[in-house]
């Protein structure tokens, strides 16, 4: 791996290799940092800062309960020919707290639309989505999106992007900066704090986007084909790192993808969708041990069976043609 550069100013940043993976040593540091921040604030009492919530040990998990309920959601779009197109048809789905759920399907099956409805960015034509029992009427900081297009603020540096959410939530500058620097280190971008997005590679941008979303502690991560625009190598690295972060934190994740491997590798549950109209075909529980390590999993016959079975199911539906 090429040596990482420190400081900014060089424009060949995009050629720098992807950041290193995560380390336990680093996470320990993050805890320390939070404790320190709270000490200065509240004297000697050590108060668990909110940012440590996402790395709470798995053992403290309460029994799974529904966090997101999607109830008979349909979405109709008008096509350019002024025809109604049924993008989602009567979708019902319950997502349990702390679960990693992938929505898998061919392009045009409405899987991203479903994610946008949960995000509150799009209102369904009929039906409703709920978070913790409350109807979703718009976007909110309890649901943090990560988009394929990164959608970083290009006029802000890496640090400025990550700090944006906490600052908006009213966290004091010094505290927001300390937490953001820690998150930037966690996603492997230490040394890039003062870079602008245009100076980063695609993989690095997506790391920033993930850190930016984690920074305001959403309860649910909504990931819309987050690694779809990345090359295979970078994609694998980011999948591994996402899993490492998630396995410590167990935040609920709704993950949209069209890659079967990706869905099986990451998820507890894979929701298979079919196209025109977008419907749930099948929900498959992925019963593979965690923590998952890529090199072990790829050799695991159970993993291989899941991938092959899911691919076969998609092939069958392709041959059958669209249901009309």
């Amino acid at each position: 791996m090429k040596a990482r550069q420190n400081g900014r100013g060089s424009n060949d940043a995009p050629h720098v290799c992807e950041g290193e993976g995560l380390s336990g040593r680093f996470l320990a540091k993050l805890v320390l940092l939070n404790v320190r921040a709270s000490e200065t604030r509240y004297g000697m009492t050590v108060v668990a800062a909110r940012s440590s919530e996402w790395m709470r040990p798995v053992t403290s998990q309460e029994p799974a309960s529904a966090i997101i309920e999607i109830d008979r959601v349909s979405q109709v779009f008008q096509t350019s020919a002024r025809k109604d197109h049924l993008a989602l048809s009567d979708i019902s789905l319950t997502i349990e707290e702390g679960a990693f759920v992938s929505i898998l399907g061919p392009s045009g099956c409405g899987k991203s639309t479903l994610l946008y409805i949960v995000g509150g960015f799009v209102s369904p034509t009929s039906g409703m989505a709920k978070i913790k029992g409350h109807a979703i009427t718009g976007p909110g900081p309890d649901r943090g999106p990560v988009f394929q297009e990164f959608a970083l603020f290009p006029w802000k540096t890496v640090l400025g992007n990550v700090m944006y959410g906490p600052r908006q939530q009213g966290v004091r500058t010094a505290e927001a900066e300390a937490q953001s620097r820690a998150l930037i280190e966690m996603v492997g971008l230490k040394g890039y704090e003062n870079f602008y997005p245009k100076e980063l590679s695609g993989g690095m941008k997506q790391r920033v986007a993930l850190a930016r979303t984690l920074a305001y502690h959403p309860e649910v991560l909504l990931m819309d084909e987050p690694f779809g625009a990345l090359d295979a190598h970078t994609r694998t690295r980011l999948q591994n790192d996402l899993l490492t972060i998630w396995e410590r934190d167990r935040k609920t994740v709704l993950f949209v993808t069209h890659s079967v491997d990706e869905a099986v590798f990451l998820s507890d549950k894979v929701v298979m969708m079919s196209k025109s109209p977008g419907r749930i075909r099948q929900v498959i529980d992925i019963d593979l041990p965690r923590p998952r390590r890529r090199n072990e999993l790829l050799l695991d016959p159970r993993y291989q069976k899941y991938v092959v079975d899911i691919e076969r199911m998609f092939d069958e539906s392709d041959e059958a043609g669209p249901v009309s």
Binding site: G119, G120, F121, G138, P139, G140, P141, R143, G144, P145, F147, E149, A151, L152, F153, Y164, G165, Q168, Q169, R212, T213, Y216, P218
Partner: peptide
Amino acid sequence: KMLWSGAAM
């Protein structure tokens, strides 16, 4: 999506 990211914050 940039606006959506802001809305979510």
